[in-house]
Design a protein around this nucleic acid. Structure first.
Lengths: 363, 363
DNA sequence: AGCTTCCGCGCAACCGATTGCACAAGCCAC
DNA sequence: GTGGCTTGTGCAATCGGTTGCGCGGAAGCT
């Protein structure tokens, strides 16, 4: 099998076969009204016959428009980011845009390289999802009117000195946390702990923490208890479980479902029953949270929709030539089995029987 | 705020500032040994000062090499595909390649469009992960020496008439299934069912089914029982659960973890205890499978590694100008709690007590 | 018939970077 | 002093389409 059987076919080939100039061929292929029907047909035929595929690089060089979008995110393997990516890609494809996806993996240098790559390829728009770079660093590379920050790191935005009031797409995490706290309080829980990554690791974290604290203090006049799992998060869930087992709160809110599920697993190993001994709530609504035992009370975040909206914001702003507006996407509390009504104001650790009864599986 | 504060800076600007020609500037920036140190320095300085970022389109137009790879997969939101994508992106980025990611979502037309997009952008290489298109259709658009099929659909390959013996990257699913069956048999299970998507939906399915059947028949001289969940797979897990509950096998092997977890959840609703009443095994080793209750016996597939290898295969073949070789990546059985040794050859349905005892949580 | 108008098409410049080739110095040797 | 070499630069072509402008011919009008 010989290499490159036939040289890549170019517009000149099509024009030659069709017996026209390149200019005419080019116009015929894009339905320019100035081209006659007969000419158009023969150009079309030639293009199909030769299997002509225009060279996007050449085209965008001239057009100064690439029909490329860039998406920078932390980790494609993460379920939440994966859904954002899926929505982004789908919406972009629907509009005829190709998507460069690059992951930052919490590495500043990688993020910089990714942004530079987007600029090298002259992406028409760039979405930056939860990165560790300052917005100032982003703007230093990418024009501000072609960037949308998705779930941005607010502390970083603040440290950037000039937090943009536009071009931010986020989910209403605060509302989600408030709803969760209210739900817990309604169900009778008072001593509530919050487990999440350390401060400075991201915006959502800060938002969620603050919201939880404010709501709880408002509702039960009691401070929330924080457990830090570090920036890497859910890795050392077992040590958190031990800490919780030593001085068990009535309910635990987790930064996200991934952490909640890891903690659920770790608590199980520590002989702490959820929800018998301790209620547990997550955040994000990943599939596993809806299939776990017990099903997790969590906040469904429409991540796919987030990805889609990011594309729409980018394209709208690029087309209009203005900075994208900001948007907030609402979330929805989903009550699972991990936060049942508390049996009595003062409880001993639940017994297996009560748990079984609550699950409706007792004899 | 005015649009496009300053026109994008081009090489000519750098050259002008540095007081050289574009040719010299270009060479200086890429460390051409023919350029003097002084000239090089002034060009460098000018480039930095202006914030020059070369235009990849222009460069690759001339170089006929884009440093772009394309990755076509079904669904970015899927955990397995997400890991493949993550590994692919990481390896590509490490080699200085940007990645176009497009999803096919089992839609033939979308896949075609994605492949066309890759060709338009003249991707140096394309990885096709589990698509529904014939390889013939793929090769009709993308040169065969720049494609790697990842976990390809073998039936489709066969129907293509010319199954390539090269350019295929797959995991050793057969070995994984064989190991699972052997494990089940060793643990005493004999009446084993296999639940998976219908035939023709994909290669892995076919492979896994065939391997399961062959191994089981070899080991216990007994045919395997198939339950079809349709091409869409795991959606109607509850109906599968009812079907299983009516005539329960001793163990169920699932096509993948996603299906296994859905089935686990559905069985729970059907009052079938796993593993008390029925053992369950999955495939893929997604995180949720390692955190479920009971932890699933499954086959860890190094999906991230798959993505990485795909990049290496592509780059190696593109550089050498030959078709990529084929590779097989091995997998590893991970024994969870969902397939404990069978208590006795003939059992009644397990009671809650026995289950609790088996879990080691009885009083 | 002569003039205007419209239609269909091609010439050539252009997008931005790369590179083959030639040319201009500077240096040494004869 | 001039030829031979090395070094450092620049001219101009090139990659593959796109597009402003102009031109020739056919049709319409008086």
């Amino acid at each position: 099998m010989r290499r490159s059987p036939e040289r890549r076919v170019v517009l000149a080939d099509v024009a030659r076969i069709a017996g026209t100039s390149e200019a005419t061929a080019s116009r015929a292929l894009k339905d320019d009204p100035r081209i006659g029907a007969a000419t158009r047909a023969s150009v079309r035929a030639a293009a199909v016959k030769l299997g002509y595929v225009p060279n996007a690089a050449a085209r965008s060089l001239r057009a100064r428009r690439t029909h490329i979008l860039g998406l920078l995110l932390d980790d494609l393997a993460d379920p939440v980011h994966g859904k954002v990516a899926a929505g982004f890609e789908e919406a972009a494809a629907a509009q005829g845009y190709a998507v460069f996806m690059m992951t930052g993996l919490h590495d500043l240098e990688r993020e910089q390289r990714a942004l530079t790559a987007f600029v090298e390829h002259r992406a028409d728009g760039v979405a930056v999802a939860s990165c560790v770079s300052d917005p100032a660093e982003v703007f230093a590379r990418v024009p501000a009117d072609r960037v949308v920050f998705v779930q941005p790191d607010y502390p970083a935005l603040a440290s950037g000195g000039d937090p943009p009031t536009r071009g931010v797409l986020r989910t209403d995490d605060t509302a989600g946390v408030v709803a969760t706290v209210q739900h817990l309080v309604e169900r009778g829980y008072r001593r509530i702990a919050y487990v999440g990554p350390g401060p400075g690791s991201g915006a959502s974290d800060t938002l969620r923490r603050a919201a939880a604290a404010a709501t709880l203090e408002h509702l039960v006049q009691r401070p929330i208890r924080y457990l830090d799992v570090g920036v890497d998060g859910w890795r050392d869930a077992s040590s958190v479980a031990r800490e919780l087992a030593d001085d068990p709160p009535e309910a635990v809110m987790c930064y996200d479902d991934k952490l909640a599920l890891a903690l659920l697993d770790a608590l199980r190993s520590t002989r702490v029953d959820v929800p018998g001994d301790m209620a547990l709530a997550g955040f994000d609504g990943i599939p596993a949270a809806h299939q776990s035992l017990p099903r997790l009370t969590t906040v469904d975040v429409p991540s796919v929709e987030v990805g889609r909206r990011a594309v729409e914001m980018l394209l709208a702003s690029v087309r209009a030539g203005v900075m994208p507006a900001s948007e907030v996407i609402s979330v929805r509390l989903v009550i699972g089995e991990s936060t049942p009504p508390i049996p009595s104001p003062v409880r001993s650790r639940g017994t297996r029987e009560t748990v079984a009864a609550r699950r409706g599986t007792a004899p």
